[in-house]
């Protein structure tokens, strides 16, 4: 370096050799930044296809049921015998809250129970993978209409016992998973899923079969009680559930047995015997 060349930042201009060196550095840095941007952008997992119709309110008419989770059964055409088909639309609240509070306030305001009644609700739809949910927000004045008389709802729930099952999957909150957030599952979303479930959102078990198809189960306690707080430590992590499965039309509800919710480890299940025998051999 020339003795005359000395860089001082508070002077207007850098010496030529310094400026030339920094130019070279920037010429190297520029493609590095672009390549990193391209690599990182293209390496992301595919975003989910869920939709949250933010800002669009839709009126939905159906029969309201409070158990096992707040839902409305909506007519969805007829089968070949002329019987009405129903789809089940679980209700969720605004933000990270369940719909129970909103529905309870509306029932209090009207001084009637909505159970088994035909109601028309206005809310925001979200849907993905064949499942439809609706957000009901008190600020949207969601109750459009409620019939005074009970509908003959016997058989409408299409309850069918499926027996005791063991399933492995991930507990997610349905609002984020089916539309609001991408990703609405996995480690990055864990805190949010916990907060949503603790806020009253019904926990859902997402199960992926060997072919990559996904099935979804609503989770409640053995006697139908809420499990929102009980699942806190199991959200967004592999779990296995032992439960009584009951189909309510197009949703299956898992009545989780006491101690029926456990963390699941693929390694522990498939390799624990090998590891134990290996350790025993080593000790021997």
């Amino acid at each position: 370096m020339n003795n005359e060349e000395f860089y001082i930042g508070w002077m207007g201009k850098a010496p030529k050799s310094f400026a030339a060196w920094i130019r070279k550095y920037l010429i190297v840095l520029l493609p590095v930044i672009i390549v990193l941007g391209v690599l990182l952008a293209l390496s992301q997992k595919k975003f989910g296809t869920g939709t949250f119709e933010f800002g669009t309110l839709t009126e939905v008419k159906g029969i309201y049921f409070n158990k096992p989770v707040p839902t409305i059964k909506v007519v969805d055409g007829k089968d070949i015998w002329g019987n009405e088909n129903y789809i089940t639309v679980p209700l969720i609240g605004f933000g990270k809250h369940g719909a129970d509070g909103v529905i309870a306030d509306l029932e209090k305001e009207k001084n009637i129970s909505f159970e088994g009644k035909e109601i028309t609700l206005k809310g925001t739809l979200l849907y993905n993978d064949g499942k439809l949910l609706m957000q009901v927000d008190a600020n949207d004045k969601p109750l459009v209409n409620v019939s005074g008389a009970n509908i003959n709802s016997v058989g409408l729930q299409k309850i069918k016992e499926l027996g005791i099952i063991d399933v492995k999957g991930e507990i997610v909150d349905p609002k984020c998973f089916f539309g609001v957030m991408k990703p609405g599952e996995g480690k990055p979303h864990k805190d949010c899923a916990i907060r949503c479930i603790l806020g009253g959102m019904p926990p859902v078990l997402k199960v992926t079969d060997e072919k990559g198809n996904q099935n979804y189960y609503l989770i409640v306690g053995a006697n139908g009680e809420k499990m929102n707080e009980a699942v806190q430590d199991y959200v967004a992590t592999p779990v296995e559930i032992n439960a009584r499965a009951v189909a309510y039309g197009d949703w299956v509800v898992l009545y989780v047995h006491p101690n029926g919710l456990q963390h699941y480890s693929y390694i522990r299940e498939h390799f624990s015997t090998s590891i134990a025998s290996c350790m025993a051999a080593c000790i021997k």
Binding site: I33, G37, A41, M181, K182
Partner: peptide, 25 residues
């Protein structure tokens, strides 16, 4: 300039190759 270049590269490519993206994410 470097920040804008990086952000533009990342956002535009994500939008093209991941059309189901959400703005927040």
């Amino acid at each position: 300039a470097f920040c804008v270049l990086y952000l533009a590269t990342f956002v535009v490519l994500t939008a093209i190759f991941n059309p189901d993206y959400t703005f927040e994410t």
